[in-house]
C-alpha cells in the first residue's frame, strides 16, 4: 500500500469523496442562489428545508419501506413548504429593505430547528433498515457505497434536467430571464410571480433531495443538521457569484474536493468549515465577482 501508485489511489479516492460532498452542496446551494437571484434575499431558512427533507425521507422510508416514494414525498412536502415560506414570510416583506426578510429568515430557521426537536425528539432519527448500504469496488481498493453512488447519480440527473429545462423550455427561459433581470423579464410579459413560486418549489425540492441523501450517508437526521449548510451554502453562493446557478455548481464541487484534501492535509490547522471560508477569502481576493460570474 506504499509508493506512488498508492498515493495516486488515495488522491483519486479523496477526489471522489470530495465530489460526493460537492454534489450535496450543489443540491443545497442551487435553491439558495436562485432565491438570491430572484429576490435579493439571503434565504437562511433554506437550510431548515434541507433538514425537513432529511426527516421526511427517513419517516416515509421507515413507514413504507420505499426510498423512492420517500424522495418524492420529501420533494413535494418540502417544495410546498418553500412556496409557503415565500408566500407568507417573504412576499409581505418585499417592499422592505432586504435585511428585514433576512431577519425573518433567520427567525424561521431557529423556530424550525426547535420544532424539529420538539416533534421528532432531540436524539434525531435513523432508518430502521437503511437502504443502499451495500458497497461496490469501483476501482481496485476504492469502495463506494450505493448510497454515495446514488447521491452523485441523483444530483447529475436532477441538475442536468434543470439545465435542460431552463435552456430549452419556455418556462425555463422565462425563469432564467427573471433571475437575471426581473424588471426586464416582467416588461416582456413574464409572469414574475409564477416564476417565484416555481423557483421556491424547485429550489426547496432540491434541498429535500440533499437532506434525504445526507440521511442515507450518515443514517442520522438531527434537528441541527441544517446549521452547517446554513452558513456554508451562503459561502458557496458568494463563491459562485451571487445568483449564478452555474457558479454555485462549480463552487460546490470545488469546495467539496478542497475540503476533502484539506481535512487530511490541513486538518491540524484548520477544521473543515474553516477551510471553506479560507477558500472563500482567497477567491474573493482574486476574483471579487465570484468564480464564474462575469466581472
Amino acid at each position: 500500500m506504499r509508493g506512488a501508485s498508492s498515493i495516486a489511489m488515495l488522491f483519486l479516492d479523496l477526489t471522489i469523496q470530495g465530489l460526493v460532498q460537492g454534489a450535496i452542496y450543489a443540491l443545497i446551494a442551487l435553491g439558495l442562489t436562485l432565491v438570491y437571484g430572484l429576490l435579493r434575499i439571503l434565504h437562511v431558512v433554506h437550510a431548515a428545508l434541507f433538514t425537513m427533507g432529511g426527516y421526511a425521507g427517513v419517516v416515509v422510508t421507515n413507514a413504507t419501506g420505499s426510498l423512492a416514494l420517500a424522495l418524492v414525498v420529501a420533494m413535494a412536502v418540502v417544495g410546498a413548504t418553500g412556496v409557503g415560506i415565500y408566500r407568507f414570510a417573504y412576499k409581505p416583506l418585499l417592499d422592505k429593505p432586504p435585511l428585514v426578510a433576512l431577519m425573518a429568515s433567520i427567525g424561521l430557521f431557529i423556530v424550525a430547528e426547535e420544532a424539529f426537536r420538539l416533534i421528532f425528539g432531540a436524539y434525531g432519527l435513523s432508518f430502521t433498515d437503511p437502504p443502499l448500504q451495500t458497497h461496490v469496488e469501483i476501482l481496485p481498493g476504492i469502495f463506494l457505497s450505493h448510497a454515495r453512488i446514488a447521491v452523485v447519480g441523483l444530483a447529475v440527473v436532477i441538475i442536468g434536467l434543470l439545465a435542460w429545462l431552463s435552456a430549452s423550455t419556455r418556462t425555463g427561459i422565462s425563469w432564467r430571464a427573471t433571475v437575471s433581470d426581473p424588471p426586464v423579464a416582467a416588461s416582456f410579459g413574464v409572469d414574475v410571480e409564477k416564476v417565484r413560486y416555481l423557483n421556491f418549489f424547485i429550489g426547496s425540492a432540491l434541498a429535500a433531495v440533499a437532506g434525504t441523501m445526507v440521511a442515507l450517508l450518515n443514517n442520522l437526521v438531527e434537528p441541527t443538521m441544517g446549521a452547517v449548510p446554513a452558513y456554508k451554502a451562503l459561502a458557496i453562493i458568494v463563491l459562485g457569484g451571487l445568483g449564478s446557478a452555474r457558479g454555485a455548481l462549480a463552487a460546490s464541487l470545488a469546495l467539496g474536493v478542497i475540503e476533502s484534501f484539506g481535512t487530511i492535509y490541513l486538518g491540524d490547522v484548520l477544521d473543515r468549515d474553516a477551510i471553506a471560508f479560507a477558500f472563500l477569502i482567497l477567491v474573493l481576493m482574486l476574483r471579487p465577482q465570484g468564480l464564474l460570474a462575469r466581472g
Binding site: L10, D13, Q21, M225, D271, R272
Partner: peptide
C-alpha cells in the same frame, strides 16, 4: 486526524485510514 463536532461526513478521513492500514 481531527474533525469538528459538526462533522457527520468522514469520507476523506476514511479514505486516508484505508491507505494507512
Amino acid at each position: 486526524y481531527t474533525y469538528s463536532i459538526k462533522d457527520r461526513e468522514f469520507g476523506p478521513i476514511v479514505s486516508k485510514v484505508k491507505a494507512d492500514a
